[in-house]
Design a protein around this nucleic acid. Structure first.
Lengths: 245, 245
DNA sequence: ATTAATTAGTGGCTATAGGCCAATAATAGA
DNA sequence: TCTATTATTGGCCTATAGCCACTAATTAAT
């Protein structure tokens, strides 16, 4: 087994097909906001295993075309939504011998945030993709351990919202501070105090003014519009928000 | 391909050996504190590829004995150190077609923190394991992309130290507040203000008193000793520490 | 003994940022 | 003009970190 004299010689005789490891896949939890609810995009599986059940968009790595894991995740996202460069980040990996009936398998879980668009209009090819409110996941027949994956992504979302401006990614631009606060509240699943919220966001100088618009609901004082400033995605607050909750 | 009528029938005909995906491995960055330096445990590879180079302890999943990814990581850690239940957590996964000359490969990276012990005494079988100061990694001939993996784990360590009590895991118990502060400073790579540090830690009530001991260096006032209270590992500070740096 | 050196621990002030909640501003519709 | 509705601000309180000098307890040298 270790008779090779050089790495070149070793590689010449190495055949990756002799190796049989766990199945490995990449799944993406794509979140958005719609009708005052946090929703996740699910597809109904057309093949065994778990045929007919709801699953996160995902699948195997294409070793020919995917340069790295992130590229695989981006491809899965684009296949289902057409969206190309949204917020997309790795959450964690989960692997054991029970999550897939085919045997030991590992999934690398990503999460993505995009402004809402009708699932139907995304692609002709995907008629089975649908936005589901995250609260309803328990009621659905979910494939594999995807309910747990959504939970993991949901937790990450909640945590990061407390010290970043992650929620800007689920809003169409420009947006009002009220809309942004609603986004924060839905992603954190808690109420925030208006003055504190506005002070925090505005003092951080991570938004740029972008005109004015009628208020939510049509009635009332017009609201200032904002777009995220460059680099705002990387802003980290030194304190978490909504501490007393 | 999709002619099966039931999941049972599908699985009966499914042969995982037909599937050939990326190589998948688990690597563990094991950190400790010694001689006022943050050190990481590396082993010198005895086989191709990267024979002779320094690598993180790690390797393939044993699908027979490893129940899940965490178990694989724990096994790698125990093989090299004998330590069984330390702080061990997943950092991220990294996969592309360039990091291993054998082809597309994915690694799931974990990090572990343990109190220092001589690498030599860990195991008879492992004569090639050695603690290296993290600052020296650049000088070493590292295997694969393990320098980048250490960097990723190091970043996570630095970030989490700012809002948790992670550093307690690199200290033998009991410890003094001065020792704990030194651990924080080395993991964060920054100086902390003594009063602020002590106030923060003591107010959080995450330590229990455990007697008294001579000060560091033998001279000076004796120091109070502490051990972590139950549940302290889960304590999250609402503000990061060392903000002004 | 006294004193200097060394390490541990505290007092007390300032500044920042969030919680709270009531007041003011700007609009639409009756 | 008046009311409802949404947006935005004022002002005070509190919690916690930064700062830095001071006190406390011990060892080693004189």
């Amino acid at each position: 087994m270790s008779s090779w004299q050089s790495e070149a010689e070793f590689l010449e005789h190495y055949d990756s097909r002799h190796y049989s490891g766990p199945l490995i896949s990449v799944d993406v939890a794509i979140f958005t906001l719609h009708e005052a609810q946090l929703k996740v995009l699910l597809v109904q599986r057309g093949e065994f295993p778990c045929k007919g059940r709801w699953a996160l968009p995902g699948g195997f790595i294409n070793m020919g075309s995917d340069a790295d894991l992130h590229a695989t995740a981006r491809r899965k996202l684009k296949d289902k939504t057409g969206v190309d460069a949204p917020l997309l980040e790795q959450v964690c990996s989960l692997g054991n011998d029970a999550r897939d009936p085919r045997g030991w398998s590992v999934t690398v879980l990503y999460m993505a945030l995009i402004p809402w668009a009708p699932a139907a209009e995304f692609m002709e090819s995907v008629t089975d993709a649908r936005w589901w409110p995250v609260q309803w996941i328990d009621e659905l027949a979910m494939a594999f351990d995807h309910a747990a994956l959504i939970e993991a992504a949901r937790d990450r979302l909640k945590n990061k919202t407390a010290y970043t401006v992650l929620p800007v990614h689920v809003l169409k631009r420009p947006f009002t501070l009220t809309q942004l606060q609603n986004a924060f509240e839905l992603l954190m699943d808690t109420q925030l105090e208006k003055k504190s919220f506005r002070r925090r966001i505005l003092n951080a100088k991570i938004l740029e003014e972008a005109g004015e618009a009628p208020p939510e609901g049509g009635r009332g004082r017009p609201a200032a519009l904002y777009v995220p400033a460059r680099g705002s995605e990387k802003h980290l607050f030194a304190r978490v928000f909504g501490d007393t909750a």
